[in-house]
């Protein structure tokens, strides 16, 4: 059996290699992407001399590996460079926006779990029943609706027709917690509802499998009540795929949050990334890429550790 410490060290090593690869790719982006950052920043009237000087300032005249080494060195000291658009420190910009995106991500996961867990439990307890049939049809329906359409529908219904929630914008939690929650509802629903559909389908399948196991039959024979049986005996072993989905979701949520944050004007990492890509603001794009990759790597490591806690057989090498 591999020692847990050695196993963790191997995982950390692989994570560092992934991050290094992402950093090299990010630093190579200005060379690979169409669209000149100099023209985007300086405008179409920039002279060739201005463009050359600007590109030199960005390190585009240097070897990618050397530029990556310098960038990593600076990043380890907390310096992720400066935005080409407004000269702001990228570290500060990210520090302001990461909490917003994280809050949105957590809220979306809570929405998804709050819907998925009860619906999946009822569906799995009575497969083919009314709730199961409605949940199955509803899940496919949600999955078929693109995020921006769902977002616009929610805005139309709750902000325009009912006028109970704001259509767009953001209030920081520290400024006004109630307003923060009001602004959070629609983007969290837009991100969370499609995830709820995926979670429901995944958890239902896993629960059906678990409910067929002998320990469930044994618990039933001992007279354990339905609710207790589902929550205590079936849910925990069936929830491992959900943990994986949430872990993967940290990475994929950036893609969704670009759209949702732009739609609802939420000042998170998504809108920062969208603006940076449109303006070819490479220092920002590079930092967002590496920070998001670090988020995914960290989430994967956390999921690994959680697996061991949720299912001790994994820690003991039985599964």
């Amino acid at each position: 059996m591999t020692s847990p410490l050695l196993g963790f060290a191997a995982r950390a090593g692989r994570a560092a290699a992934v991050l290094l690869l992402v950093a090299v790719t990010a630093l190579a982006l200005p060379h690979l992407m169409p669209g000149s950052p100099a023209v985007a920043a300086l405008g179409v009237t920039a002279t060739p001399e201005q463009i050359t000087a600007f590109e030199a300032g960005l390190g585009l005249d240097r070897n990618v590996l050397a530029a990556t080494a310098d960038w990593i060195g600076a990043a380890l000291h907390g310096d992720l460079g400066h935005s080409l658009a407004n000269g702001a420190a990228v570290t500060t910009e990210l520090a302001n926006r990461i909490p917003v995106t994280l809050e949105l991500f957590v809220a979306a996961q809570l929405v998804a779990l709050a819907i998925a867990v009860p619906v999946a439990l009822v569906s799995a307890w009575r497969p083919g029943g009314a709730v199961d049939r409605i949940a199955t049809a509803g899940a496919f329906g949600w999955l078929a609706v693109p995020g921006f359409v769902l977002g616009l529908l929610l805005i139309w219904l709750t902000a325009v027709q009912l006028r109970i929630l704001p259509a767009t914008g953001w209030t920081p939690f520290t400024e006004d917690p109630v307003e923060n929650l009001r602004h959070l509802v629609l983007p969290a629903l837009t991100l969370g509802l499609p995830e709820a559909a995926v979670f429901t389908r995944t958890l239902r399948g896993q629960l059906l499998d678990t409910l067929d196991r002998t320990h469930i039959a044994a618990a039933r024979s001992r007279g354990m009540g339905t609710v207790r049986l589902l929550l205590r005996r079936a849910l925990r072993p069936s929830s491992l795929p959900l943990v994986t989905l949430i872990g993967i979701g940290i990475g994929t949520s950036l893609g969704g949050s670009v759209l949702v944050e732009s739609l609802f004007a939420v000042p998170g990492v998504g809108t920062l990334a969208a603006g940076a890509i449109n303006g070819r603001d490479f220092p920002v794009i590079q930092a967002v890429m590496v920070v998001c990759a670090a988020g995914v790597v960290l989430a994967t490591l956390t999921v690994d550790l959680l697996y061991r806690t949720l299912d001790p057989r994994i820690a003991h090498g039985h599964r």
Binding site: G151, T168, G275
Partner: peptide, 19 residues
């Protein structure tokens, strides 16, 4: 002034009174 880059949600913000 708030930046509302999406034209659809910007328009809906006008209708809802957020802008």
């Amino acid at each position: 002034y708030r930046v509302l880059p999406d034209s659809d949600s910007r328009y809906q913000s006008l209708r809802s009174g957020d802008a």
